[in-house]
């Protein structure tokens, strides 16, 4: 695939506020997002549910109208050149949006025709894609009578029918079993290896780590940090995070830990203590012992190695899944 020059996706100060409706106040879903995704890159928007990822994808795919900032896809403006952008992108939505009035193969065939292929070309292209993705057996089936993993692969095929310049995937593996998820990752890796630009959203840390060249961590409609997974771990989350919940106010001597080398930060919140450490060996045991020395018991304890999850914890000060 010859990639024309220029960024695949570029946004500046992109915003979306949904207007107030009835008793519900206005929702600032996206509050100024800057993205720069070069062609050929596998880029991930990572964040918890409700962070504004889907709204961002909605704006990039022209179906959500921005209320501020600019967004360009393949050098085209998402508001002014919406139709031309739609010709150049493929989108895999979170839900199964296959056409239930058509068979699996017809879904691909008509999608090809919508994008300008002739009827015979479109049928041939549909068959090729289904074979390639191991979906040959499903071709005559109803798209709602195949498995969730198969349906997702059919949707990816459908998004690829017209050879899009950028492929958008919104939470591609949400709700899939682990085996199916790894299979799908394999498919996406192969696609990127063939030169496909991919932008995906996910709330699975391990998915972003496994697939993406670069990741932007999003929360509350803002980008908290972005870079390669290694960069993120290096700058924001090089620490192992140890969390201990005491059954009483934590022992005073814990405050002193913050000054020790190898410990970057200690956060105390009620009975819960969180220690960010570059040298975590033995620390968990020490925290338990400190409590025991003052007669304070431990009700819960955990230790997270440096990962996108600790990056998130460091950036937001709260658990990813809270």
């Amino acid at each position: 695939m010859t990639a024309p020059p220029g960024a695949a996706v570029r946004t500046a100060g992109l915003q979306k506020t949904y207007p107030a409706s009835g008793p519900r106040p206005a929702v600032p879903a996206v509050q100024g997002i800057d993205l720069d995704v070069p062609r050929g890159e596998f880029f991930g928007l990572l964040g918890p549910n409700g962070a504004g990822k889907s709204t961002t994808i909605g704006m990039l795919t022209t179906l959500v109208v921005p209320t501020g900032g600019t967004a360009h896809v393949c050098g085209l403006d998402v508001v002014r050149d919406a139709v031309e952008i739609k010709r150049r992108i493929g989108v895999v939505s979170q839900n199964n949006t296959l056409d239930s009035d058509l068979t699996v193969a017809e879904n691909l065939e008509f999608r090809g025709r919508f994008f300008g292929l002739g009827a015979r070309e479109a049928r041939k292209r549909a068959d090729e894609l289904l074979e390639l993705f191991g979906l040959g057996d499903t071709r005559g089936g109803n798209p709602f009578e195949i498995s969730g993993g198969q349906a997702k692969r059919v949707m990816i095929c459908r998004a690829l029918v017209h050879g899009p310049e950028v492929l958008f995937l919104d939470e591609p593996t949400a709700g899939l079993d682990p085996q199916t998820r790894t299979n799908l990752w394999e498919v996406l890796r192969e696609l990127q290896a063939s030169g496909q630009t991919i932008l995906l959203t996910t709330h699975y840390m391990e998915e972003a780590e496994a697939l993406c060249d670069r990741v932007a961590v999003v929360d509350h409609g803002k980008i908290l940090a972005s870079g390669t997974v290694d960069q993120l771990k290096g700058t924001a989350g090089a620490d192992t995070v140890i969390t201990v919940a005491y059954d009483a106010p934590p022992p005073d001597r814990i405050h002193a830990l913050a000054d020790r080398t190898g410990i970057s930060k200690v956060e105390i919140n009620g009975g819960q203590v969180r220690v960010f450490a570059t040298e975590p060996d033995g620390l968990l045991g020490e925290l338990v012992a400190l409590g025991a020395a003052e007669g304070v018991g431990v009700t819960d304890a955990s230790q997270l190695r440096p990962s996108l999850e600790t990056v998130f914890l460091t950036l937001t000060g709260r658990d990813y899944r809270e």
């Binding site: 695939m1 090809g112 292929l117 002739g118 070309e121 292209r125 090729e128 894609l129 390639l132 993705f133 690829l160 029918v161 017209h162 050879g163 498919v187 192969e190 696609l191 063939s194 496909q196």
Partner: peptide, 8 residues
């Protein structure tokens, strides 16, 4: 491996 040919 999906080695995808470009579409017509």
């Amino acid at each position: 491996a999906p080695v995808l040919a470009p579409p017509p």
